[in-house]
Amino acid sequence: MTTYAPAADAAAHHHRDDLGSRMGMWLFLFTELILFGGMFLVYAVYRFGHPEQFHLAAMELNTFVGTVNTIILLTSSLTAAMSITAIREGRKGFAIGLLSMTVVLALAFMVNKYFEWGHKIELGIYPKSPEMLAKTPGEILYFGLYYTMTGLHALHVVIGVVVLLFMFRMIARDVINAQSYVRLEAGALYWHLVDIIWIFLFPLFYLLH
């Protein structure tokens, strides 16, 4: 194993600034926070204005599916976090195995989402449907927000999978290794953000009993 010179020298030699890279990733995550934060704000204002109708609309959501998807995402975050430990220990195969689990869990989340949305659409619950237009303004707002916010979140899940597949390839090609793993850290940070967004979406949409 390479023995490193003191930090400043090592950075100068390799032109590498892992701390700066991670900070850049965090700054990007703040833009995501504001993006979703704005939507949560819209949700809060409309819910404040139509508490009973939000409550009524939320009855249509399946708490069980929401709970399962929460557990799936939390577990996918666990394996993503563990893959960093694995790569730092030089256990390449294990890191790839853990990341594969994250990807599989992400796909399971999307499959659940597909059936969940599909079922709603079958029931005629989608924007501008006759069933929807017959509902109260609060319910229409609730479902509008439901589709927009869980939809944007699902888009982030898909992007996260693509990011993780790139990580996968870089680990396989030893671009990410025990000495250089900041890319994997950045990818995992993105994935954990997607998890945090869901941690708030879940109670706000599914647990409004």
């Binding site: 892992d18 577990t75 975050s77 666990l78 430990t85």
Partner: peptide, 19 residues
Amino acid sequence: HHHSSDTHIVGYGQYLLIW
């Protein structure tokens, strides 16, 4: 001999506990 900008390695056990 880790680079000084490296963070502490979190053990699998701690991750599992948090999970």
